[in-house]
């Protein structure tokens, strides 16, 4: 009974922390990027302020927009949030842990993407369709890379359950593995593409023809835009949390631990996410956006890395 209560409590706490951290992470990335480029940048809390202001504004719907424009942001944000609830954060053994299957997480993020694409096509404008076509095309390359990386993790951990993977890797049960390194690189590439970050897409661009993610949101305003921005921020947080859970699992509170280890876990989790966000900012400052036609090559390289990781792992486990 106590264990169940603890699991429920950690789950709720995790959700609240995730929601609070998402805009902060986005703000941290923006500020760090600006500083690295020699600008002062916006304050850390700017995404929060933007969201609160947008929530109070009157949304304008395009003339031919249908119910899809109104419903899609809610669907996308709840799917992303559900995916976030499944990714272990500061503690393990949360109440949804038995369902924390990487395939389901990928599926939920895919659901959010589908909602975004439909919203982009709904107003019947050129740029929305452009962004939608590109987004679905990139997903066709990102998905196999993601799943083959999951294959590597599942082979090492014996299961595709993220909670089990994190638990095993926290114990250091996987050893030093070239395959894990390759899988980490592949997952990072997929994360960059999924979050529309720099080599793939520019989150701060103002040139419509190069946009992917933002092009689908051109017609969104008011609370719809606030929801979409929250979704983007949350998606980034979920991906960073996922990478942290798999590749930096140290310091997580084990299942059934007490509040003290939760506190340590939460502090470390925050530090890990902040570190990843800073690394993202540094990477984005150092690299230029690639041409849209090169993105399939970039994601294809991620797929190749993941396949190579799997093959090397097959050979070494087959010999041992």
């Amino acid at each position: 009974m106590m264990a169940l209560l603890g699991a429920l409590l950690t789950q709720l706490l995790h959700g609240a922390l995730l929601l609070a951290a998402a805009p902060l992470l986005l703000g941290l990335t923006r500020t760090a990027k600006a500083r690295l480029m020699g600008r002062r940048g916006p304050p850390l809390l700017q995404p929060w302020r933007d969201a609160l202001r947008l929530l109070r504004k009157r949304p304008i719907l395009a003339e031919h927009a249908s119910v899809a424009t109104r419903a899609a942001p809610y669907l996308a944000l709840s799917a992303t949030l559900l995916a976030g609830l499944l990714v272990p954060g500061f503690a393990q053994g949360m109440i949804l842990a038995p369902f924390a299957d990487l395939l389901l997480i990928a599926g939920l993020l895919g659901l959010a993407r589908a909602a975004l694409v439909l919203a982009g096509l709904d107003a019947g404008t050129a740029f929305g369709g452009l962004g939608a076509g590109r987004e679905t095309a990139f997903a066709a390359f990102a998905e196999p890379a993601l799943l083959v990386s999951v294959l590597v993790l599942a082979l090492l951990a014996g299961s595709a359950n993220l909670d089990a993977i994190a638990a095993l890797f926290r114990e250091g049960g996987q050893g030093l593995r070239v395959s894990l390194l390759f899988a980490a690189l592949a997952l990072c590439a997929v994360a960059l593409a999924e979050n529309a970050r720099v080599p793939v897409d520019n989150p701060a661009t103002h040139l419509e023809l190069t946009m992917v993610h933002e092009a689908m949101l051109l017609e969104a305003s008011g609370r719809h835009l606030a929801l979409w921005e929250a979704q983007a921020a949350l998606k980034l947080a979920v991906w960073l949390a996922l990478l942290a859970a798999v590749f930096l699992p140290f310091g997580m509170a084990p299942a059934g631990a007490g509040p003290l280890s939760w506190l340590i876990g939460a502090a470390l989790w925050g530090a890990k996410l902040a570190g990843l966000a800073f690394a993202l900012a540094a990477f984005e400052s150092a690299i230029a956006k690639m041409r849209v036609f090169r993105v399939p090559e970039f994601l294809g390289a991620a797929l190749l890395l993941a396949l190579l990781a799997a093959a090397l792992l097959f050979v070494s486990t087959g010999l041992a």
């Binding site: 504004k57 009157r58 003339e63 019947g124 051109l218 008011g222």
Partner: peptide, 15 residues
């Protein structure tokens, strides 16, 4: 609960 006014129709922005 944020209390924004109801949505309004307008021409598509389309950049």
């Amino acid at each position: 609960r944020a209390g924004a006014p109801a949505a309004q129709r307008g021409p598509a922005w389309d950049c």
